[in-house]
């Protein structure tokens, strides 16, 4: 109980501090930060899966479902309230994840990664063919409102950033509490040795399915935030390179910490954006060098800078196990 209170207090303080910081940010950074926070929420879902020893290369699918569900509601039916859209986006993708979970939860390692990626590419192909919702060009959606309040230009960016930060803090707090709970720790145990977890009487299948649905809801929330921030949604949301970006962020953040992914997302966005504007012909190379440097010097991600005590490094033969 003590731990719960501590996590909630830290989460609330972090949320308020980040919101305050939003007022001091230049406007371009505000938008980049909003997008990074949304990416961080999706990557948090991958971190949740990683704690169970799995990596999904198809989180773009749930990100896309969240964006399309809330985007269609906004564009077609005029529902622009950010909170309603977030609930619809999160529940919509959570529902799809719940349908897919029993299928993919039986697979491990590369088979799990490939199956999730294949499903996301199926969604991409289907959406690109449906002209009623814009086909491969996607569709635009109106500016969000906030509980009946429709802020103008600059204020709207700040409001959306605040909603993104609040959502992210809530997700991070709930994930931290889940990670430290008994079911969450069983996930960590199944990462180490699935056989023993089964002998202890827990179901690895249930752990994986649960983590997968949580990751789906988080991806849907991230997708909804980005759809509102961008004002445009297209099937590229479900493309495998989008999913790849989430995996990169999750790896950079590492699975030890629930907040590291948000820092990782922001740093990735800034490195990409600045290398893109100063080296337009070779920005991919710079981004690649940056990612390699992080993997070489911080193999457990940014989170290991402060959360090293919480998780000991995995044994060297970990990959051989499965």
């Amino acid at each position: 109980m003590n731990n719960t209170l501590k996590v909630v207090v830290i989460g609330a303080i972090a949320a308020l501090a980040l919101m305050a910081l939003g007022f001091a940010m230049p406007r371009w950074l505000l938008f980049t930060a909003t997008k990074a926070v949304a990416f961080g929420i999706v990557a948090l879902g991958i971190v949740t899966l990683m704690r169970g020893g799995l990596v999904s290369f198809g989180q773009g699918m749930y990100y896309c479902v969240g964006a399309y569900a809330s985007g269609q509601l906004a564009a077609r039916y005029g529902v622009t309230d950010a909170f309603i859209l977030l609930i619809v986006g999160g529940l919509g993708s959570g529902l799809i994840a719940a349908v897919v979970a029993p299928l993919v939860a039986r697979y491990r390692g590369i088979f799990f990664a490939m199956l999730t990626m294949a499903l996301s590419m199926v969604l991409y192909g289907v959406l690109a063919k449906i002209n009623a919702i814009g086909g491969s060009d996607g569709f635009n959606l109106p500016k969000p409102t906030f509980a009946g309040f429709a802020p103008q230009d600059g204020a709207s960016d700040i409001a959306l950033y605040a909603v993104a930060v609040a959502t992210a803090s809530l997700c991070a707090v709930l994930c931290r509490l889940y990670y430290d709970s008994r079911p969450g720790l069983i996930a960590l145990a199944s990462r180490e040795n699935e056989l023993r977890v089964e002998y202890l009487g827990a179901s690895v299948f249930a752990v994986t399915a649960r983590n997968f649905i949580i990751a789906g809801v988080l991806a849907g929330l991230g997708g909804t935030i980005n759809a509102m921030a961008l004002g445009h949604v297209d099937p590229f949301f479900s493309y495998w390179t989008t999913s790849g970006e989430f995996v990169f962020i999750a790896i950079l953040g590492g699975y030890a910490s629930a907040i590291a992914v948000f820092g990782a997302a922001l740093i990735t966005e800034l490195v990409r954006s600045f290398s893109g504007s100063y080296f337009p012909d070779s920005w991919q190379l710079l981004l690649g060098i940056f990612l390699l440097a992080v993997i070489v010097f911080l193999p457990l991600g940014f989170g290991s800078l402060w959360a090293r005590r919480r998780v000991t490094p995995p044994p060297a033969d970990e990959e051989i196990r499965s």
């Binding site: 371009w28 980049t32 920005w283």
Partner: peptide, 24 residues
């Protein structure tokens, strides 16, 4: 001229457009 790569989809382009206007 400030040259920017259009790769990466509409998401990245909206972000880079804002950066061009608000940062550059």
């Amino acid at each position: 001229l400030v040259l920017i790569d259009e790769a990466g989809g509409a998401t990245v382009q909206v972000q880079e457009f804002r950066n061009l206007v608000q940062r550059e």
